[in-house]
Structure formats: C-alpha cells, structure tokens
Amino acid sequence: MRLFPRFAATLSGFALALSAHAAGARCTAISGDCTPRIGIVSAFGAEADILVAETRQRRSHTIHGKRFTTGVLRGNPVVIVLSGVSIVNATMVTQQMLDHFRVERLVMSGIAGGVNPENHVGDVTVPDRWAMPMEVFWNADSKLPAPCGKPQDMSCLGLKLATGPDGQPLPPFVLPTPGGPVDTGLFMRETYVLSTANAPAGGFRFDFPVDARMLEVARSLQPKLERCGPRAKRPDGSLDETMCVKRQPRLLVGGRGVSAPVFLANAAYRSYLHEVLQAQTFEMETAALAHVAHANGVPYIAFRSLSDLAGAEGFDADVGALFASGLAEFNEAAVTLAFLEAWRASRPAPRAAKR
C-alpha cells in the first residue's frame, strides 16, 4: 500500500507526458503545466509586479531559482517572469519559459533609452523589428575588413557583415572628437541563428521582425497613458507637477529597436544608431528574446517605455518624475494590458461543436 502513492504519481506524470506529446506542447514535469499561454517576459520589476497582481488564478512555479507565475490576465492564459537586466539573462529566461511551458506567443515589456530625439520621456514604443548592433567585427580602422582575403568576406571565420538595402556593408562607427573624427573600426555583423527550419546549416540575420498579426493589434491600441504617475497625487488630491512629465506620453508603433550588452551613455553612438539604422530605442534584452523566439518558431512583440534620451547630457527632470511617481511602470503596464484585451477580442470565436 505504501507504494501506491508513488505508483500513482508516476502514472500521473506518464499520463501528463503522453498528453503533452499528443498536443505538441512545450511543457515538463517541472511545471506540470501544458495550457497554451502567452509568455510575458518583463525586464522591469515594478511593472512585472503590476501584471502579476492583475493576474487571476495565480500559481507560482520556481525553475532554477526563477519565479514563473501562471494564470489568466485580461482573459488570456499567461505565464509571467522577470528576466533581469542583460542579453544573457533575457536569453536564458526566455528559453527556460519555452522549455517548461506551452508558450504560443511571447510579449516583452520594460523600460528603454530613447534613440530618436523626436521622442520623449514617457512615450511607449512598439518597434516592428529588433537588432543587436554591437555584434561587431572590431577592425583596426574604418577600412573594409578582409580577414579571408577579399574585402567584406568573413566566410572563413563563420561570420557575415551586416549590409544595407544596397548590399554594401553598413558604415562603421566613427567617434567625433574636438581634434577630429577617430576611427573605431566597429563594423556591425549579422547574427548566426540555427533553428529547425534552417538546420543543419543555419543562417544569418540582422533584424528579427515582430509578428505581423500582433503588430496589427498594437497599431489599433488607444491606451490611456498618464502624464503623472500614481504617486504624484498629494494627500489633498492635488497634483505635484514636479512628479509629472512635461509632455503627454504617446504610443509609438514602428521602427527598429536595438539591444546590446551595454548601458548606452554615449550621445555620439546613439546618433550613429539613429542615422544608420533609424533606431528608435535602445536597451539590453529584447533582441535576445527575439533571437530565441525566432529560433523556436514562436511569434513575439515588445513594448518599451522611454526613460530618457540615451547618452543625453545634464539632468532631465522628466526622468526623475518618471521613476519617482511610478509613471514608468504604470504606462508600460497600461499598454501591455490594453494589448492583451485587444488580442483576446481579436481571436476568432470558438466553433460550435457538431452534433
């Protein structure tokens, strides 16, 4: 009789595995969860807390120290996790989520630095593609590198330079200084990706486009974005204007987002990214999630609230207000929640069962 509980548990696990295999599910005995879900990876803890608090039927799963929260958010089955800052953390936690849960779509959200000077603190961006511009070939100067004999040829190294629409390599970063321009020799590369679709050879990509259908839903959103965060209200109900950003935040859809394993505080490099790539926002996670999503064949989209102009000099009162008032996480969560509501509404109604 003592063996029966163990036998029952084993039988239950076996049945779960068979069910998951039959459904083509990505799930394991660690989570024991095979429900089709939207995976939400948040890079900002305060925003992740809002999303978790809004989730119903919450259940927590700890996998290698990371807390994954499953439940229903705005009518969608979801699994939510905080990635932590950096390309490496975002890569690791996204693959863990895909390995242990049945994730059918991915959403990334968090805070980012602005690249386009026309955008402002508090705006929420939804780029239509993401790239990693600091995947580079670091040459001695700005001459086109020729490590394999011919200019631009890197096949002997298993590398490929990033090119523009004309097929020519993208120009390297040149650092402007009071004494004149200085060559850095930093040439952008494409990223090698291996997936089921392109195995065994793999292939190279510079951009990872977001899912067209998810982007279409994002373009339809009209979220209520605030200028003042929830902590801007005084006890008497009046607003502390020092805790508000000067301009009304906007939802900006389209353009390129870029990620790198650096905190960008260099105005010259930010200008280079905007000029050469027409980049809108810069941060340290989303392009890694995009790479993992592409390799696993999972559609994705990302929302990023702008915290500052990357590399801007001097104090910006809007930056202080954004974080001190709680506006950063409030507006970011508002867009994510609005997207989930619109996504649920866009899903086709289930067909009636045939008699």
Results as ranks from 00 to 15, higher is better:
residue 1 M to I: 15
residue 3 L to Y: 08
residue 5 P to H: 00
residue 6 R to I: 15
residue 11 L to C: 15
residue 12 S to C: 10
residue 15 A to R: 02
residue 15 A to T: 05
residue 18 L to F: 05
residue 25 A to L: 09
residue 26 R to Y: 04
residue 27 C to N: 14
residue 29 A to V: 11
residue 29 A to L: 15
residue 30 I to R: 01
residue 34 C to D: 13
residue 36 P to C: 05
residue 37 R to G: 11
residue 38 I to M: 15
residue 41 V to H: 00
residue 44 F to P: 03
residue 46 A to P: 06
residue 48 A to C: 11
residue 48 A to S: 13
residue 50 I to H: 05
residue 53 A to T: 09
residue 56 R to E: 13
residue 58 R to L: 05
residue 58 R to E: 08
residue 59 R to V: 10
residue 64 H to N: 09
residue 79 V to H: 08
residue 79 V to Q: 00
residue 82 L to P: 07
residue 87 I to V: 14
residue 90 A to V: 15
residue 93 V to S: 04
residue 99 D to C: 10
residue 99 D to R: 08
residue 100 H to A: 11
residue 109 S to Q: 10
residue 112 A to V: 03
residue 115 V to T: 08
residue 119 N to V: 10
residue 123 D to Q: 01
residue 124 V to T: 08
residue 130 W to A: 11
residue 131 A to S: 14
residue 140 A to N: 03
residue 141 D to W: 07
residue 141 D to R: 01
residue 145 P to R: 02
residue 146 A to S: 06
residue 147 P to C: 10
residue 149 G to V: 11
residue 151 P to K: 02
residue 151 P to C: 01
residue 160 K to T: 07
residue 166 D to Q: 13
residue 171 P to L: 12
residue 174 V to N: 07
residue 174 V to W: 01
residue 177 T to S: 13
residue 179 G to T: 10
residue 182 V to W: 01
residue 184 T to M: 09
residue 187 F to R: 03
residue 188 M to L: 15
residue 189 R to W: 00
residue 190 E to D: 05
residue 199 A to P: 01
residue 199 A to M: 04
residue 212 A to C: 06
residue 215 L to T: 03
residue 217 V to C: 12
residue 218 A to M: 05
residue 219 R to D: 10
residue 220 S to Y: 09
residue 221 L to F: 14
residue 222 Q to G: 14
residue 225 L to I: 06
residue 229 G to I: 04
residue 230 P to R: 05
residue 233 K to R: 14
residue 234 R to D: 11
residue 236 D to W: 09
residue 240 D to L: 09
residue 240 D to T: 02
residue 243 M to E: 02
residue 243 M to P: 04
residue 244 C to M: 06
residue 244 C to H: 04
residue 245 V to E: 05
residue 247 R to K: 13
residue 248 Q to W: 08
residue 251 L to V: 09
residue 262 V to T: 11
residue 263 F to P: 05
residue 264 L to M: 12
residue 268 A to D: 07
residue 269 Y to D: 10
residue 271 S to M: 01
residue 276 V to L: 07
residue 279 A to P: 12
residue 279 A to C: 10
residue 280 Q to P: 11
residue 283 E to D: 05
residue 287 A to N: 03
residue 287 A to R: 00
residue 288 A to G: 08
residue 290 A to M: 06
residue 297 G to T: 07
residue 299 P to D: 06
residue 299 P to F: 13
residue 303 F to Y: 11
residue 307 S to L: 00
residue 312 A to Y: 05
residue 313 E to K: 02
residue 317 A to C: 07
residue 317 A to E: 08
residue 319 V to Q: 04
residue 324 A to T: 07
residue 324 A to P: 00
residue 328 A to L: 06
residue 334 A to R: 01
residue 337 L to G: 09
residue 337 L to D: 08
residue 338 A to W: 05
residue 339 F to T: 03
residue 340 L to E: 04
residue 342 A to C: 13
residue 344 R to Q: 06
residue 344 R to V: 10
residue 346 S to N: 00
residue 347 R to S: 14
residue 347 R to E: 15
residue 354 K to R: 12
